[in-house]
């Protein structure tokens, strides 16, 4: 007697999903716990390890009374701007590399590849000097600029555009479309998965950035959430893990909503390994 394949698939998928989610659930539970309970039920395991007894909203209230609201807004703002502008620019560059023919294309592609091999944190120092001289400290522009030009996103678009049949492009030329028309009316609409994944790259680069915002935007008005969260360490009573967990929950919540929304564009048109075998 064999179990139906769909059921096995569901069990495996659900197990994997829940395993990945477990630590995040623990963060969520921690966000609802009073400070002294955070590490109380670590060992031995009990139902209380993963369920908030004495649940409280005090952490959330305390968090949003401080600078965190502003920091979360800043994070959302700079990320949205960086993703929107970055998607357009990176898609255009990826298009040029995949479709246009020009001398030095290999060299430009090499520059793109090298640009994402360079550890950003290691070059933060000279870059900081440059931005400082340009007067971009404590500005949104200073926060956003490094996140717009992303070699990895360009590379992703190039790979994707290479897979679009060139017959479509030739048809566009015959219809009298300009290069921009081909890009805008043929390539972009066909590339939703690329937009979503390139958006993911740009989003997480900006959302997760820590060292750069710490240096370029230290002022409270421009502080981003990833930096604000680090301030709950080193207080009079040690580290305020309750507030760290609460802040982490809200920082993860916004991408979670976006991911959930964009999931529907990944609905499979085929089942690659065969639903019924």
């Amino acid at each position: 007697m064999k179990m139906p394949r769909g059921l096995i698939r569901l069990i495996v998928a659900a197990t994997a999903g829940l395993l990945f989610f477990l630590p995040i659930w623990w963060i969520t539970v921690g966000a609802l716990r009073p400070r002294e309970d955070i590490f109380r039920y670590l060992s031995p395991l009990s139902w209380e390890t993963l369920w908030p007894t004495n649940a409280t909203l005090n952490n959330i209230i305390q968090l949003f009374q401080g600078d965190f609201t502003r920091a979360l807004f800043n994070s959302v703002f700079v990320t949205v701007v960086a993703v929107v502008i970055g998607l357009i620019l990176c898609a255009m560059a990826g298009f040029a590399l995949a479709v246009m023919r020009f001398r030095g294309r290999e060299a430009v592609f090499f520059v793109v590849v090298v640009s994402f091999l360079i550890p950003f944190d290691a070059i933060a120092l000279p870059l900081f000097g440059l931005m400082l001289d340009a007067g971009l400290q404590n500005t949104y522009i200073g926060l956003i600029l490094p996140g717009i030009g992303n070699g990895l996103a360009v590379f992703l678009y190039r790979q994707f555009f290479l897979g679009i049949p060139k017959e479509l492009r030739e048809a566009g030329v015959i219809d009298g479309m300009t290069t921009f028309g081909i890009f805008w009316r043929i390539y972009l609409p066909l590339s939703l998965p690329a937009h979503i994944t390139a958006g993911l790259i740009l989003f997480l680069f900006q959302w997760q950035a820590y060292l750069w915002p710490l240096l370029i935007a230290p002022d409270t008005d421009y502080k981003v959430a990833a930096v604000a969260i680090a301030q709950f360490t080193d207080n009079i009573e040690g580290t305020q893990y309750n507030l760290i967990f609460t802040a982490a929950f809200f920082i993860a919540l916004i991408p979670m909503i976006l991911i959930t929304y964009f999931q529907k564009y990944f609905t499979a048109s085929v089942s690659s390994l065969g639903g019924k075998g």
Binding site: L214, P218, T233, D234
Partner: peptide, 14 residues
């Protein structure tokens, strides 16, 4: 301007 203990040196150095 508050930075975490571990980053204070980084912030000053930079």
């Amino acid at each position: 301007q508050v930075v975490p203990f571990n980053d204070l040196i980084t912030a000053i150095e930079t």
